[in-house]
Design a protein around this nucleic acid. Structure first.
Length: 655
DNA sequence: GTAGGGTTAG
């Protein structure tokens, strides 16, 4: 050590020595450089290090990093200093040496960022990084946590497959990653919404004999809630308690939010109430808890209740945030109460909360839905004035708003503008326009837009393909639809929406046998939904095969959950078209008995048909009986048909 | 680690 410090104090001498060392290939020259670097690095004498830089080799870098394994900060600074130099690239081994040092000293974030750089910037595969770490493992006397860190790095930079390969290879070498690494991997799968894979992995973990920890349990609860399997989520909660693991606020919130999503707000409220007892008084509701409940009420259209929850929240000392207000503002706007929504905007500002992009997007969306172009323009200018930045949602909301209100040219112009600015990152805006073109029978225009998506590096998704397939089917070009379907199938797994469109195509060209076969195979996959059945019913009705249509209705009743208002409307529509008003009325009665309330379409169909086939009194009687059954008369139909039939003295009372 | 807003189907 004395010798080293002597050298460092005389750097000129050292430099000369180094020169000589090179000439005479002195066997100790690397040692000398190494010692010198160590001493000077200890004192952060970067200028000195700059001078010796030309003599550095990868082997030396690894040695220095190893030497500083107990001073990871210095090792890292050395690494960063080296990174700024232009010379030779650092070998994988030197980088891995540093990773080992950082992990051993529990500086995980630094280790992770180096590994992420290796994968992202240097383009290495996770397996190559793993090989580097394995090669240097013994030399660095590293610890197994380094492999957990690699798995974490992979999941963080989206290399999910790589993460799994790493785990698998380690397993084959007899090295097991810990449950923490698996948890990271599982968490990544949930973020990607890969639920099927999540459960496969989970089974694999359990089969290896790992003991689930707190995080594993929370992930399982989260996965179950995502799948709306609320009871199973709750039973996992109890399994957690049995294993001696106390659930935390996140566990509760996931279940409460899950309950709200399936409309089980009462259960959610009960859970909030019992939270204290169930957690041995460790857990109490936080902002997330209240926001889930608020959102639950808002989605049910009960915004006034949500406001009460907000007041309870404040009373309980939990501060509402922008999300609390965003949910209620969206709730009011969704229900057409824009004024109430704007009132809440003022209220949140008074509470010191500024409306953000989400709040503006929501108001914009519902204003456009109402056709209030003027209002949405004002909101948009306000958004710009207040420097609230638009995002992907804003762009697609504007494009859809312009399209659905007839400003198609402006929508395309706006789309081009934002494309030029390169701010479009997702498929929504394209999908909206493609869908619009498909609906206007401009399939070639739609295909062109798909082409421009590819050019921009945007990969068409199921919605894009769905719009095209549906467009072709509606045009009666089943061949083209199938062509798109085949193209899509290479990359994506079709969903029920796609199948429904194809089914509709088959029905349109009256290939009812093929349609029936299709629904049967969909059934074996457990895929059909209400729309599948309704499409087939509509198909049977269109070919005049009412027997098959009604026997399908029976079949649907047996299955249970698929019969809805549309099912009845389809059948009633065809009975009306055939002039069978009596049967149509009978069917409407049946519909009401099943607890389904006829909507404005049912009302219009029946009134129009009875006006053609029955006496004025019968039409009025039909109107009255429907109103008694809770039907809200469709004003346009009422004004055009029913009202003129009423005597003057009755007019006022019935409106 | 959990909560908000936008696209497809009869």
């Amino acid at each position: 050590m004395v010798f080293c410090s002597f050298l460092s104090k005389r750097s000129c001498f050292f430099n000369r020595g180094l020169h000589l060392g090179k000439q005479f290939s002195c066997p100790n020259s690397e040692d000398i450089v190494f010692r010198a670097i160590c001493v000077n690095l200890k004192h952060r004498r970067w200028k000195f290090l700059d001078q010796v830089f030309p003599s550095l080799t990868n082997a030396l870098v690894s040695r220095v990093v190893g030497e500083f394994q107990n001073s990871p900060q210095l090792a890292l600074e050395f690494y960063d200093w080296f990174g700024k130099k232009k010379g030779f690239p650092l070998s994988l081994t030197s980088r891995c040496a540093l990773i080992h040092v950082l992990v051993k000293s529990r500086r995980f974030d630094d280790a992770l960022s180096i590994m992420e750089k290796l994968i992202h910037v240097n383009g290495m595969t996770p397996m190559e990084v793993l090989d580097g770490l394995l090669d240097s493992y013994e030399i660095c006397k590293s610890c197994p946590a380094v492999f957990d860190a690699l798995v974490r790095a992979c999941t963080r930079c989206g290399a999910t497959e790589g993460a799994y390969l790493v785990i698998k290879k380690l397993r084959m070498e007899g090295r097991l990653v810990t449950i923490h690494a698996w948890n990271n991997f599982l968490s990544q799968l949930l973020k990607l919404n890969e639920i099927v894979r999540f459960w496969n992995m989970y089974k694999e973990i359990i089969s290896y004999g790992y003991i689930e920890n707190f995080n594993t349990f929370n992930l399982v609860v989260y996965a179950l809630c995502k799948e709306c399997k609320l009871l199973e989520a709750i039973s996992t909660f109890y399994r957690m308690l049995k294993s001696g693991i106390l659930p935390n606020i996140v566990t509760f919130n996931m279940i409460i939010d899950g309950a709200c999503r399936v409309g089980g707000i009462e259960l959610a409220l009960k859970l909030v109430e019992k939270m204290g007892v169930m957690s041995e008084n460790f857990v109490s509701p936080n902002t997330v808890t209240y926001n889930s409940i608020i959102n639950g009420f808002c989605k049910l259209g009960k915004v006034a209740f949500a406001e009460e929850v907000l007041n309870d929240m404040i009373k309980a000392g939990v501060k509402p945030d922008v999300r609390s207000y965003a949910a209620m503002i969206d709730g009011y706007a969704r229900g057409g109460c824009l004024e109430e929504a704007l009132r809440l905007c003022d209220e949140m500002v008074e509470r010191g909360l500024m409306p953000n992009t989400v709040v503006y997007n929501s108001i914009l969306h519902w204003l456009y839905s109402e056709g209030d172009i003027g209002g949405s323009s004002l909101v948009l200018s306000d958004m710009i004035d207040k420097h609230v930045f638009p995002d992907q949602f804003t762009y697609s909301t504007l494009i859809q708003g312009l399209c659905r209100n007839g400003y198609v040219m402006q929508a395309f112009k706006f789309h081009c503008q934002i494309m030029e600015k390169n701010v479009i990152e997702d498929t929504f805006s394209h999908n909206i326009l493609i869908n619009y073109l498909c609906k206007s029978n401009d399939l070639s225009g739609a295909m062109q837009l798909v082409g421009s998506m590819f050019i921009r590096g945007l990969i068409p998704d199921l919605v894009t393909y769905g719009a095209l397939i549906d467009g072709y089917c509606k045009e009666g070009k089943l061949g083209s639809a199938v062509w798109v379907y085949e193209k899509m199938k290479v990359e994506k797994k079709p969903n029920i929406v796609i199948y429904n469109s194809i089914l509709n195509g088959l029905c349109k060209e009256m290939s009812m046998d093929a349609a029936r076969r299709m629904i049967d195979s969909l059934k074996s996959l457990g895929l059909p939904d209400a729309i599948t059945y309704n499409t087939l019913i509509n198909g049977y009705c269109s070919c005049g095969n009412m027997d098959e249509a009604f026997s399908l209705l029976m079949e649907m009743r047996k299955v249970g959950r698929f019969v809805n208002t549309v099912t009845y409307n389809t059948l009633i529509n065809f009975l009306c078209k055939c002039g069978c008003i009596q049967q149509a009325k009978e069917l409407t009665k049946r519909m009401v008995l099943e607890g389904l309330i006829p909507d404005f379409i049912t009302y219009t169909m029946l009134i129009t048909c009875s006006a053609k086939n029955c006496s004025a009194d019968e039409v009025i009687e039909l109107h009255d009986s429907m109103v008694l059954n809770g039907v809200v008369p469709y004003q346009q139909t009422y004004q055009a048909i029913v009202r003129p039939l009423l005597g003057e003295e009755n007019e006022e009372t019935r409106v």
